[in-house]
Design a protein around this nucleic acid. Structure first.
Lengths: 212, 212
DNA sequence: TATTAAGCGGAGTCCCCACTCATATTATTG
DNA sequence: CAATAATATGAGTGGGGACTCCGCTTAATA
């Protein structure tokens, strides 16, 4: 609660020894892989093994398993945010912005699904596994806000070109993306059905009936 | 399948002692509640406590924690199936079936969300928690099939009346329902946004643009 | 190269939890 | 009500996993 500072991810201003920085990175990568594959219930030792590091090292960099999971989640949210910002910038740079705004939104949609595939469901799983997404929102409000804003930019532009209905906000779109990922992961669907499923959802976003 | 057969005075297989049957039921209820609240990671002791029973009793009725979780999941799937069948029967009984077929589908859609709320996410969570939904499908193929069929009936009729696009199947609808539940649970949305989200998804199912 | 402190390794501690078993209780039956 | 078989109980067991500790290693610096 009275937690002070030592943020988990970004501030690498602290001069870490070369090997330390390298190991920290390896651990993060390994954690991402392992938790994606086995969920947050995977043991810390498994992460250490995958990173080619001793368990003591894992705990040196992340004082708690929860902190490790949090770092992974933040990393993913940050990646998605960067993706959204990148797409928005690409639209800016282009002359024929109108057509691209719609395309950019769709690309982001699919990119989200892609990045989430078999992975992000664990974000939902960890809700009841000690760490809570809500908690991360509290301790790192900026991460969520940035994602929200970045999605908001893409959304607003796509709405302006008429591609996307105007009665939805960034929060709703994000929720929809989360749901779409989950639906997409649903067992028992083949590739065609998965793709089709996404088109159904996107059609909903295009606004079949001018509700209100 | 264990339908009550003749009562030749001989309590067939179900010859559980009265208290045993009662306790079994209590445990199932408690498990449903507890797992809904804390996810499948909740301890068996917690379930026992909630059921007002000793831990030994829990294991007498369900030899494994996994078996207990499985029983809860099957119970829910069965409940959803019954709900779908009930709605289909209601349409049958009505004269003005056309209008009702569409309404029945929508009611089922909302009913699913309602029954899943804050609950069913655990079905996704347990995917990586030992038990796997896929596994239950293998050991109890009939449960999944019945649900699929029941949804199929509602869907086909709604499509026939023109309310729902014809290029989606029961599997896709179920996946969409799962995703919709997940989106609906998403933190950071108020009641209005949640409702709105569902309408967006349903609009997609209505087929905004006659794609293909 | 010598010095030194940051880092690392990994065996060990502690706690939690699924599951068992010997004993006590109770529904059922005649 | 007695007999007995089915149940319930709950302390106990075993294993796994998060986290610690301290001696050894090595990057950084003069």
């Amino acid at each position: 609660m009275e937690r002070q500072t030592p943020a988990t991810t970004a501030p690498q201003r602290t001069s870490l020894r070369a090997d330390a920085r390298r190991n920290r990175e390896r651990v993060l990568e390994a954690a991402d892989t392992v938790f994606s594959e086995f969920g947050p219930a995977a043991s810390t030792e498994e992460v250490a093994r995958r990173a080619g590091v001793s368990i003591g090292t894992v705990f040196r960099h992340f004082p708690t398993k929860e902190a490790l999971i949090e770092a992974v989640v933040i990393g993913r949210l940050t990646q998605l945010t960067a993706e959204a910002e990148r797409l928005a910038d690409a639209v800016d740079a282009d002359a024929d912005a109108d057509a691209d705004a719609d395309a950019a939104f769709l690309i982001f949609f699919h990119r989200w699904i892609e990045l989430s595939a078999t992975k992000y469901q664990f974000a939902g799983a960890l809700s009841r596994s000690g760490t809570d997404v809500q908690e991360i929102r509290n301790t790192h409000p900026d991460v969520g806000r940035k994602l929200h804003d970045a999605v908001g930019v893409l959304l607003t532009r796509a709405q302006h070109t008429g591609g996307i209905r105007r009665d939805v906000g960034a929060s709703e779109v994000i929720a929809l993306l989360v749901g779409a990922s989950r639906a997409h992961e649903h067992v028992g669907l083949d590739a065609d059905q998965r793709a089709h499923l996404l088109s159904v959802i996107i059609d909903g976003l295009r606004g079949s009936r001018p509700a209100t």
